[in-house]
Amino acid sequence: MSARDAIEIDPPYDFPGYKSTALRAPKQPLIRVAPHPLEIAGPAFSRSFAKESEADLTTWGKSAPLGEKMILVGRVLDEDGKPVRNSLLELWQCNASGRYAHPVDQHNAPLDPNFLGQGKVLTGDNGEYRFVTIKPGAYPWRNHPWAWRPAHIHLSLFGNAYAQRIITQMFFPADPLLPIDPIFNSVPDPEARQRMVCKLDLEQGIEEEALGYRFDIVLRGAKSTPTGV
């Protein structure tokens, strides 16, 4: 049994509280195999793949978007504490009213013509990243009666190896919707759940302009594959 088995960190595929898992969760056991040479390597994105302007979601429109401006900073590390450098981090989110600039989103909340909700960066030499955005709103979804998603930012990470590729969500501290959100609570370990919650970090903000938040992200380590390779 590997260290990864001892604590279940990721949610299960089948989680009845989240209805869309019912027909989409694989039922057969995963096949455990040694990593293919491609899986311990990873795609290399040039720094120009993420333009500098894509780290600031508040300058996309003609004027500032509505909402509470925030600076999001953090580091991407692996389980051994090593920084994940030069790695693609993509972010998407709804606007301050809880509406995505997305054709499928039918939430009866206003679109913001100055907010697209899309950003990307490559991490720096210490795995660090910084986004400027606005705090997303909560929004209703049809999973169950009175279902509202807590405010969250979607994050997509490549790491330095294909095996590290992950998509996750970042939540905000003390959100009263967290205890009743099936997606957040699909993570079995309460401590692991808290690792999806950012921390207020005032000094990262801009005085009289934006609040600062910190969110560090930890990816799989090089040695933590199920086959121990």
């Binding site: 960190i9 709804c94 997305h102 969500q169 999806m196």
Partner: peptide, 20 residues
């Protein structure tokens, strides 16, 4: 070890944010 950030669903609204 064991301090990884958990995975979460991509959800239904990724098409604009993840467009290449």
């Amino acid at each position: 070890m064991g301090n990884r950030t958990p995975s979460q669903t991509i959800g239904p609204f990724f098409h604009v944010g993840l467009k290449w």
